[in-house]
Every structure is written in C-alpha cells, then in structure tokens.
Amino acid sequence: MSFTSSILITGGTSGLGYSTALSLSKSEPDTLLIIIASRSSSDAEERINSEVGNNNVIYLPLDSSTHEGVRIFVKAYEEKSFPPLRALVLNAAIQFVHKIHFTPDDLESMFAVNHVNHTLLFFLLSRYLTDDARIIVISSSGHDPSLKRVPPPTYVSAEKVAHPETGKKWNTQTEGFRRYGLSKLCNLLFAYALDRRVKEQGKEWIVITMEPGVMATNLFRWSSWFGWIIGLRITRWFIKDIFTTDYVANTLVKMIVGDEFGKKDKSGKYYTVIDAQEIPSSKQSHEEKLQDDLWEWTVKEIAKNDNEAEEFRRL
C-alpha cells in the first residue's frame, strides 16, 4: 500500500506511545504510515499490525540518550524515503529520581532525553514536515510549582539544568523529582519558543503541548512498587488524574489528526488530557527570556558546527 503521509511517535513501543500508535493504526489505516521510535528493540510493530490487520506501523530504533543516537536514527530514517511527516509526537521520557545520572554527552540524563535530544530530532526532521504539520510535545503537571505535584522546579539557566550540582546531598528522591519537573518545564519553554518562531517566519506548523496526567507506564521503571501503586484502582480515589494509556491516547490522537487541532489558534497552547481543554502552564514557562536562553543553549549544544547552528535557527 502506498501512504501519502506519516506520523512519528517517540517512545512508541510501550505505554502512551504504543496506545497512540495502535489507535492511529485503527482510525487511519489507508492514509498514514506510523513510525514508532524507541531505544529498546520491540515486537510492537508486529503486534499492532497483526491486531489491526494492516501494515501501516513501522519500528525504527532510536537511542535518544545521546546526540549521536539521534543522528544515527535520522540517517536510517532518510534512507527509507518515507512520505512527508504530518505530525511529530515528542512523547518519550525517562525518570531517574534516586540519584543523578549523566549521559555520554555529559548532560543530566532527564534533561538530555526529555528535552535536548528531542529538540535535535525535531531540527533534523524539520525539512520533512508538511507545511501544516503538527509538533506535539508531552509535558507534565510536575513542571508547575503552584500545583505542588513535585518539589518546585525553578529554571535559572539551561547550563545549570544540564550540569546540576552533584554529591550525596543531591542524590535524593526530592531532588530527583525536582530535576524531572525541570525537564518537563523545558518541554514547555521549548514549545513556546518554537511557536513564536513559527509565527514570526510565517509557517503554518501547529505546536501543541499536552499534560497527560499519571499513567502506570515504564516511566516508573526506577521503582517497581511506585508503578504498582499507580496501577491500583484504589489509588484513583486519592489521585484524580490517574488514567489508562488508552484514555490518554484518545485525546492525543485528536491532537494529532483531529480537525479541531488543525486550526492555527490551537498553536502555542497547553492542554490537559481531560477533554483536551486548554489550561494554564506555570509562570516561568511564559518568560521569553528563559525560552530564548534554553533555545540558544540547546542549539549550541547539539549543532555540529556554526553552519548547522544557523540552519537550526532558520528552522
């Protein structure tokens, strides 16, 4: 079958990414090629295609822990000559809260995976986006200190997020959750900075950020007991925004292909999984000075040279 467009979902082999790919495969069997990208090898492609009775899901390995891993993925992607991307869903995330981890690029791991290397993926794939493509970033309520979900994250500079203080004092769950919330704040800072640049350049891309609630997924692989508790029905009596991945995927699919989210006035906003309603994000997320600091630091970090940095700035 010849497909006219494609959608790429990071972290698409499990959890929310898998449920979203499955839902899309069912609802758009003839027009979409769904590319699921994840670090771990998986039979997700075979399972979804077998269940749906179609062949519109493809798996490509993506190691988003390093810049080089992203570049290897993009090279493999380009060799496949896929149809244009009508949506790029930046969904994959990690959560390490017991101690500080650093990637081979010497960046704090949650910041590297949840923001930096997703941004590199966006820049390298931007030339393959359709004129009206949607870029969807999955953030978290943990970014907002006013909600008191995790210890309050405060953005000072991208450099301080990338290279936090180390030592026993910082290897606690309290600081780990703070760093996680900070990485999700960076998701919003990036999305809002991107939306401003898209509008300034007269592009028709739509940039959407979603708060997915809490799900029992591999995000909590650092603690088997925590993930188990999240999965209990009784826990939902105490935490009102615990959802199944299927429920969240239904909202995410609307954002990816629904007509309502194809309108320009949907861009540059933050939505909750519940009825896909617009909600406010944190005060810091709207500070353009912080958005620009993150944008410029990230471009300098991921660009191979000055020419590529300028290319990234031009989108």
Rank of each mutant, 00 (worst) to 15 (best):
T13E: 02
W237E: 05
Y192L: 08
A191G: 14
P151D: 11
D293Q: 05
L107Y: 10
L22T: 08
D241Q: 11
K203L: 04
S14T: 06
V273C: 09
L121N: 02
I34P: 15
M255N: 06
Q277M: 06
V150T: 14
S146T: 15
L121F: 03
R47Y: 07
F261Y: 13
K266S: 12
N91K: 08
V214N: 03
T245D: 14
A158N: 07
R149A: 09
R39P: 07
D265H: 14
I279H: 01
E175Y: 13
E28W: 12
P212N: 02
E51N: 06
K199W: 01
K283G: 04
S65P: 06
H115I: 01
D144C: 12
I239Q: 15
F96M: 06
V74K: 04
F261D: 08
W205D: 00
G15Y: 05
K254V: 06
K264P: 10
W237F: 11
I34F: 15
L129V: 00
I100Y: 00
S267I: 01
S141N: 11
V57A: 10
D30N: 12
L121D: 05
I274C: 05
E308Q: 15
G17F: 08
A162L: 08
H143R: 02
G213W: 03
E288T: 03
V207K: 01
Y270V: 00
N54W: 10
Y77P: 03
E296K: 11
N307H: 08
P84D: 11
T251Y: 11
A216G: 05
E308V: 07
T272S: 14
F3Y: 15
